[in-house]
Each structure stands twice: as structure tokens, then as C-alpha cells.
Deep mutational scan, measured.
Amino acid sequence: TYYTVKSGDTLNKIAAQYGVSVANLRSWNGISGDLIFVGQKLIVKKG
């Protein structure tokens, strides 16, 4: 599943929405910090 980042989104918010961990979101998307951008597509695997 792909999720497109919207204004106001955070990794924590997206992780909670999908029932996954922030660590997994980072791993699946090659993100090291907490910086995400509006319009960015993130890979999300269902929890």
C-alpha cells in the first residue's frame, strides 16, 4: 500500500493510522529521521 503524505502528517500519525511502528515505516521507506514531505509517497505494509 502507498500513502501520500498530506500537510500536517507525521510519521507517528501515519504509523498509528495503519497500526504499524514508526521504525517499520522508516525501514520500508529508507528514512533515517522524522523528515517527510507533502506529496511524498510512503510504502505502508498493513500491521
Rank of each mutant, 00 (worst) to 15 (best):
V38F: 06
G47S: 14
G19N: 14
V20S: 06
Y2A: 06
K46C: 10
A16Y: 10
V5S: 03
G33I: 06
I36D: 02
R26H: 05
I14G: 00
A23L: 10
Y18N: 08
T1A: 10
Q17A: 13
D9F: 01
L35Q: 13
D9C: 02
A15S: 10
S21Y: 04
L25H: 00
A23H: 14
Y18R: 04
T4R: 07
G19P: 02
V38Q: 08
T10D: 09
F37H: 13
V5Y: 02
K41H: 11
V22N: 04
Q40W: 05
G39L: 03
Q17V: 12
G30A: 13
I31P: 02
L42Q: 00
G47P: 13
Y18S: 06
A16G: 09
Y3Q: 02
L25I: 10
A15H: 02
I43C: 07
V44E: 00
K46P: 15
S7M: 13
L25W: 00
L35C: 10
I43N: 06
K45E: 12
K46R: 13
G33Y: 07
N29T: 02
K13D: 12
V5C: 05
G39V: 01
T1F: 14
Q40K: 05
S27G: 09
G33M: 08
S27V: 11
L42T: 01
G39T: 04
L42S: 00
G19T: 07
L25K: 00
K6Q: 14
K45A: 15
I31H: 03
L42C: 02
V20K: 03
S27I: 13
G8E: 07
K41Y: 09
A16P: 03
L42H: 00
K13W: 15
D34K: 06
S32N: 14
L25G: 00
I31Q: 04
G33E: 10
V38E: 12
K13P: 02
N12V: 12
N24G: 07
D34Q: 08
K45Q: 14
V38M: 08
L25M: 06
D9T: 02
L35Y: 15
G30S: 12
D9A: 02
Q17M: 14
K41S: 12
K45W: 15
G47K: 12
L42P: 00
V5I: 08
K6M: 11
N24A: 11
L42G: 00
D9S: 02
I31V: 09
V20L: 08
W28Y: 05
K46G: 15
L11S: 01
T10S: 10
S21E: 09
A16F: 13
A15C: 05
Y18I: 08
N12R: 12
N24D: 15
T4W: 11
V22F: 04
S7N: 12
D9M: 03
F37G: 06
K6I: 14
Y3W: 04
D9R: 00
T4F: 09
N29S: 03
Y18F: 14
Q40C: 05
V44K: 02
I14T: 01
G39H: 05
W28R: 02
I43F: 11
I31L: 15
L35S: 13
L25D: 00
I14W: 01
G19Q: 13
R26E: 06
D34L: 07
S21D: 10
L25P: 00
L25N: 00
V22L: 10
K41W: 09
